[in-house]
Structures are given as C-alpha cells and as structure tokens.
C-alpha cells in the first residue's frame, strides 16, 4: 500500500516530467502520451489540461482513491530532441520493466544532466549549414564564404545575448541586422549579393516551432498549435525588421522584392 508521502513524490515527479517535455519543444500529443504512460507505470491516473505557459494536472491514486490537483508553470528550456527521445525511452522502460520510482528518478536526473553539444562545434555546424543553404539558393562560392562568416559571427552574438537573458525579440532583430550587414560585403565583390544577404539570416528562422505548431493543429491540439505558430510568426517579423535595417542602409530600399 502506497503511503501518502510516496503519492506526493509521484505527483511531483509526473508534473516535473511533463513540464520538462513541454518546455523542451516536444509536440503536445507526445507530451500527453509519454506522461500518461509513465503515470500508468507508477500506478496513478493523470488528466492534464495543457496551456502554453502552464499545465493543470489532476492525478488520481488508483489504490487509495486520493486525487491531487496541481497547476505547474512551464519553464522555457532550449529545444532538445535528445530529451524528447530519451525521456520517451524512459517512459517505455518504466512501463515495460515496472521500474521503481527511485530508479526512474535516478535515470531521469542522469538524462536531464547530459551536456548539450559543444558550443564551438555547434557554431561551426550552423555556419556550414547556412553556407550550404546559400549554395542551394544558387549563391556563388564567394557568397557561400561570406555567408559562412556572417553566420559564425551572428550565431556567436545570438548565444552571447541569449546568455544575458535579453528579450528574444531584441536578440532576433539585432542578430538579423548584424548577419545581413556582414553578408552585404558581398556587394563589394559582386558575389551574388542578393542571395548572400537573403540567406544570411535564415539560420534564425524558428523552424521547429513552426513544424510543431502545424503538427499540434493537425493532431487537434489547435489552441497550443496556434500559440506556437504565433510565437514563431513574431520572431519572423523580428528577422524581417533586422534585415530591412540593413537593406535600407546598403541596398537603397528593400530591393529583394
């Protein structure tokens, strides 16, 4: 028989697990599925109402019949597909192997503590990616090199500002401006400057929230899907504003259109 203290530990763990998944950019139906599965493994039934900034839980202990409600704020973590796949795995392992709460918590802490990809490696990968993008849009080799450097500096600047908790919108406007301003060097070498300037900001496009938003809408979590899309749209507007500053300075107007 579960004592009350154990039940409250289970409630704390289940809410923490769900909020962590939600905050790490996992699409809604997977958050629900994984949380229900891990609840099942721990012998409780969970009902959840999901909102963008909070999740409301109602957790029911099958043995004692006790019900606990909890409203937990969703903290924004950086998007992590690593947590997405490993925490899904954890829910299956708990479900299939009837792991104890201690064991589940131990594995959870281990997964959450795994370090992210090395920052310098990440920066160079992103710069390569944006250079490759420039090639896909028909940029010359000179433009690819310039976009590579512009992305290297832009991404470093973005991480620097994000560490100082500057508003997302300000970060996106400034980064888009700086990256495209550097890319406008391509005009001096006549190295397909419109492609260089146009692709230099594409690493900022919030692709994951855009896709997650549509996935949520298709899977009938319409409210959350629209919330994600609106958030992504605001960031795209910020990118456009930053880029338009460069274009009005060096390009004599928005001639990309």
């Amino acid at each position: 028989m579960k004592v009350e203290k154990d039940f409250h530990r289970i409630v704390d763990f289940v809410t923490e697990y769900a909020v962590r998944l939600m905050g790490s950019g996992v699409h809604t139906s997977r958050v629900v599925r994984n949380t229900l599965r891990i609840s099942e493994a721990l012998g409780v039934t969970t009902q959840m109402t999901l909102l963008h900034k909070t999740i409301i839980f109602s957790i029911h202990d099958k043995e004692s019949g006790q019900v606990v409600s909890d409203v937990v704020p969703v903290k924004g973590y950086p998007i992590s597909f690593f947590l997405n796949s490993e925490l899904s795995s954890l829910s299956w392992a708990a479900y299939d192997n009837h792991l104890s709460l201690d064991e589940i918590e131990r594995r959870y802490k281990q997964i959450v503590a795994t370090p992210r990809i090395n920052h310098y490696l990440l920066t160079s990968l992103v710069a390569c990616a944006n250079g490759a993008f420039c090639q896909l849009f028909g940029g010359s080799w000179g433009a690819i090199g310039i976009v590579f450097v512009a992305t290297l500096i832009g991404f470093t600047l973005k991480s620097f500002m994000q560490k100082r908790h500057i508003s997302h919108y300000v970060v996106f406007v400034i980064t888009a401006f700086v990256s495209s301003a550097i890319a406008s060097v391509a005009m001096l070498f006549n190295a397909t400057p419109d492609v260089a300037i146009g692709t230099s900001v594409l690493f900022l496009i919030p692709g994951v929230p855009l896709l997650n938003g549509v996935i949520d809408i298709v899977e009938s979590h319409i409210l959350l899907g629209v919330t994600r899309l609106v958030g992504a749209l605001l960031l795209i507007m910020c990118i456009a504003v930053g880029l338009s500053i460069t274009l009005s300075l060096v390009h004599n107007g928005l001639v990309l259109l």
């Binding site: 950019g25 950086p78 998007i79 992590s80 597909f81 690593f82 947590l83 796949s85 490993e86 992210r116 990809i117 490696l121 990440l122 990968l125 992103v126 710069a127 390569c128 990616a129 944006n130 250079g131 490759a132 993008f133 090639q135 896909l136 690493f203 692709g207 994951v208």
Partner: peptide, 19 residues
C-alpha cells in the same frame, strides 16, 4: 548540401548523437 544544412540547423535543437 541539404544534408549539411539539416545537420547544422538540426544541431541547434540538440538531437541525440545516434540520430
């Protein structure tokens, strides 16, 4: 080039190494 772009942009979202 699309593969390079996917790896770089994907890496921002921290996928597991094996992916």
């Amino acid at each position: 080039f699309a593969a390079i772009a996917a790896i770089g942009f994907g890496a921002i979202s921290n996928p597991p190494r094996r992916a």
